[in-house]
Design a protein around this nucleic acid. Structure first.
Lengths: 198, 198
DNA sequence: GCTGGGTAAATTACTGATGGGTCACATGGT
DNA sequence: ACCATGTGACCCATCAGTAATTTACCCAGC
């Protein structure tokens, strides 16, 4: 690469570039599978610059978490407010699809199962997951109570299953880049009706 | 540690011990999150012995894959033959629960999303996943065709969602060690009926 | 019944590569 | 001249993988 010296890119702009690259890399290969060097190279800069802006690998991942966490939470909240408090699953899914159509690996950043099990990173991830679960699974709770079940652990488990199901859809979408958000919505609509759930 | 020299443990027995430990470690922390040294320590032996028996880290993981792959495929096959070719999802789940009650991390070994994307390991995992999908999702295919949908990609996606849903249940179970296999079956029965699927 | 060697079961100590993280320094704009 | 932007080179821990060696078991032949 060329010599040192500024290239006319402001810190804020550079941070956005780095986070963009990092979200895709972390989403693809997971926290453990990505090296800071790799992110720096794909962003066209050197490793110390990443550290100068984000302090550590965890700091970089944390920035990604806040980026995609905010995106997803906002999308689901907006969908819920549009379709009333009894938001159906399909509306939530559709909102997620359009929100991440340009950044399809965003979801995986929040749902990497191999994160370091301690520290601030884990806490931030859990907070965002919790907020998504609280919103996305209000409908699930309705389902259960309507069926006469109100076991607390049942609710927990159903939440987990729902979030993993979304993960499955998102990963499948990553493997089928030709599919549009609208097509994904239609596909999920077919699946949901075939399953008999509204 | 003590000196060198045999401790009166045969190779076959030692291999079983190592694979047992490795399945748990790999299931907990994923392929990338486990070092061969850690497996050796938890098995009470030294690293070179692991290499002498399994050649490489991939070789060790491969042994784990065959172990749990065989276990799971056999369990699902038996459940299917018991409940006729139109095996319901609940029977499959119950068979899985009892099969892995003593090794609850087995499923995660087959469904680690961060495996090295090339090589024999990936192929073996894909084979076992494929066999499980073919059996477990025959019922899903019925669901879709009965609802009038026969899109090939829809089937693919539904398969993925089903397998991720099982992953979710298995991970939840790992986090709730007090639950028995029977309780898990009952819980999943409640969830399935609440969802309206049979 | 002892002895001695062949072999299986083990270990300590190394190597080479990679990855997180740091330092001293270089460059460009204002 | 100053500060933000930017880099090459380095440090240290860890990890996959590999000698070289050491100990215990087993079984011939005397």
């Amino acid at each position: 690469m060329g010599k040192a010296g500024t290239k006319g890119v402001s810190r804020a702009e550079r941070e956005r570039q780095i986070v963009d690259v990092a979200v895709e890399e972390f989403g693809r290969h997971g926290y453990a599978g990505v090296s800071v060097t790799a992110v720096a190279q794909r962003a066209g800069i050197s490793k110390p610059l990443v550290y100068s802006y984000f302090d550590s690998k965890d700091g970089l991942y944390l920035a990604c978490v806040h980026e995609v966490g905010g995106l997803l939470v906002d999308a689901v909240a907006a969908a819920r407010s549009r379709s009333g408090s009894t938001g159906h699953a399909l509306d939530t899914l559709g909102a997620l699809f359009t929100a991440v159509e340009q950044r399809r690996h965003a979801w995986s950043v929040l749902y990497d199962p191999a994160l370091p099990p301690t520290g601030e990173l884990r806490d931030a991830v859990r907070r965002y997951r919790g907020r998504l679960a609280a919103m996305g699974a209000a409908g699930a709770a309705q389902l259960l109570t309507r069926a006469g079940h109100d076991d607390r652990l049942d609710h927990e488990l159903l939440n987990d299953v729902w979030q993993h199901a979304v993960t499955a859809v998102m990963r499948w979408w990553s493997d089928h880049p030709d599919q549009s958000a609208a097509e994904m919505s239609a596909r999920c609509a077919r699946l949901l009706t075939a399953l008999g759930a509204g």
